[in-house]
Deep mutational scan, measured.
Amino acid sequence: VTLFVALYDYEAITEDDLSFHKGEKFQILNSSEGDWWEARSLTTGETGYIPSNYVAPVD
Rank of each mutant, 00 (worst) to 15 (best):
V1E: 15
V1T: 13
V1K: 09
V1R: 06
T2S: 12
T2V: 13
T2Q: 13
T2C: 08
T2P: 14
T2M: 14
L3M: 10
L3K: 05
L3I: 15
L3N: 05
L3P: 05
L3Q: 08
L3F: 10
F4K: 02
F4N: 01
F4L: 04
F4I: 04
F4S: 03
F4G: 04
F4C: 07
V5K: 04
V5S: 04
V5R: 04
V5Q: 07
V5F: 09
A6N: 01
A6T: 03
A6R: 00
A6Q: 00
A6K: 00
A6H: 00
A6V: 01
L7C: 06
L7I: 11
L7H: 03
L7R: 04
L7P: 00
L7W: 03
L7T: 04
L7V: 07
Y8R: 10
Y8V: 07
Y8T: 06
D9T: 06
D9C: 06
D9Y: 04
D9M: 04
Y10E: 00
Y10R: 06
Y10A: 02
Y10D: 00
Y10S: 02
Y10M: 04
Y10V: 02
Y10W: 12
Y10K: 03
E11S: 11
E11L: 12
E11V: 15
E11W: 13
E11I: 15
E11Q: 13
E11P: 04
A12I: 02
A12H: 06
A12L: 01
A12G: 12
A12D: 02
I13N: 11
I13T: 15
I13Y: 09
I13A: 13
T14M: 13
T14Y: 15
E15W: 12
E15M: 13
E15R: 10
E15D: 13
E15V: 13
E15C: 06
E15G: 14
D16P: 05
D16E: 12
D16C: 10
D16S: 11
D16Y: 15
D16V: 12
D16Q: 15
D16L: 12
D16M: 15
D17Q: 14
D17G: 15
D17M: 14
D17V: 14
D17I: 12
D17L: 15
D17Y: 15
D17N: 14
L18P: 01
L18C: 02
L18K: 02
L18I: 13
L18R: 02
L18N: 01
S19Q: 04
S19F: 03
S19T: 09
S19I: 02
S19H: 05
S19V: 03
S19G: 06
S19C: 04
F20E: 00
F20K: 00
F20D: 00
F20I: 05
F20A: 02
F20N: 00
F20L: 05
F20S: 01
F20P: 00
F20T: 03
H21Q: 13
H21T: 12
H21K: 15
H21F: 13
H21I: 10
H21Y: 13
H21V: 14
H21D: 05
H21R: 14
H21M: 14
H21S: 11
K22W: 05
K22R: 11
K22N: 04
K22Y: 05
K22P: 03
K22E: 07
K22Q: 10
G23D: 06
G23N: 06
G23A: 03
G23Y: 05
G23R: 02
G23S: 04
E24S: 04
E24K: 01
E24W: 10
E24I: 02
E24N: 05
E24T: 07
E24Y: 05
E24M: 05
K25M: 15
K25V: 14
K25C: 07
K25Q: 13
K25G: 04
K25R: 13
F26M: 05
F26A: 00
F26V: 03
F26L: 09
F26R: 00
Q27W: 13
Q27M: 15
Q27D: 08
Q27Y: 15
Q27S: 08
Q27V: 15
Q27T: 11
Q27E: 14
Q27A: 10
Q27C: 08
I28A: 03
I28T: 02
I28Y: 03
L29E: 05
L29R: 04
L29M: 09
L29H: 05
L29Y: 06
L29V: 08
L29K: 06
N30A: 08
N30E: 08
N30Y: 07
S31N: 13
S31I: 13
S31C: 10
S31W: 10
S31H: 10
S32H: 11
S32F: 10
S32Y: 11
E33H: 14
E33R: 12
E33C: 09
E33P: 11
G34W: 10
G34Q: 11
G34H: 13
G34V: 15
G34E: 15
G34A: 15
G34R: 12
G34L: 12
D35Y: 13
D35I: 11
D35V: 10
D35W: 12
D35A: 10
W36V: 07
W36Q: 07
W36C: 06
W36G: 03
W36H: 08
W36F: 11
W36N: 06
W37H: 04
W37K: 03
W37L: 08
W37Q: 02
W37M: 06
W37R: 02
W37S: 03
W37G: 01
W37Y: 09
E38G: 04
E38M: 15
E38T: 10
E38Y: 15
E38W: 13
E38V: 13
E38Q: 14
E38R: 10
A39G: 06
A39K: 00
A39D: 01
A39V: 15
A39R: 00
A39P: 00
A39F: 03
A39T: 01
R40H: 08
R40N: 05
R40W: 08
R40A: 07
R40E: 07
S41H: 08
S41C: 04
S41Q: 05
S41K: 13
S41A: 07
S41P: 01
L42D: 05
L42Q: 08
L42V: 08
L42G: 03
L42T: 08
L42M: 13
L42S: 05
L42C: 08
L42K: 04
T43V: 11
T43K: 13
T43L: 15
T43A: 11
T44M: 02
T44E: 02
T44D: 04
T44G: 03
T44L: 03
T44Q: 03
T44I: 02
G45H: 07
G45Y: 07
G45I: 01
G45K: 05
G45F: 08
E46W: 08
E46Q: 14
E46Y: 11
E46G: 08
E46K: 15
E46D: 09
E46C: 08
E46F: 12
E46A: 15
E46S: 09
E46H: 11
T47I: 13
T47Y: 09
T47M: 09
G48F: 03
G48C: 01
G48L: 02
G48H: 03
Y49A: 05
Y49G: 04
Y49S: 06
Y49I: 10
I50P: 00
I50A: 01
I50E: 00
I50T: 00
I50H: 00
P51S: 05
P51E: 02
P51T: 02
P51C: 06
P51I: 04
S52W: 08
S52V: 10
S52I: 06
S52F: 08
S52H: 08
S52N: 06
S52L: 05
S52M: 10
S52R: 11
N53W: 12
N53T: 12
N53C: 08
N53G: 13
N53I: 11
N53V: 09
N53S: 14
N53Q: 10
N53P: 06
N53D: 11
Y54Q: 05
Y54L: 13
Y54N: 04
Y54F: 11
Y54M: 11
Y54P: 01
Y54I: 06
V55H: 01
V55I: 09
A56V: 13
A56R: 11
A56I: 11
A56S: 10
P57V: 08
P57L: 08
P57A: 11
P57G: 05
P57W: 06
P57R: 09
P57I: 10
P57C: 05
P57D: 04
P57E: 09
P57M: 10
V58P: 04
V58R: 03
V58I: 13
V58F: 12
V58Q: 08
D59Y: 13
D59I: 11
D59T: 15
D59P: 14
D59N: 12
D59L: 11
D59G: 14
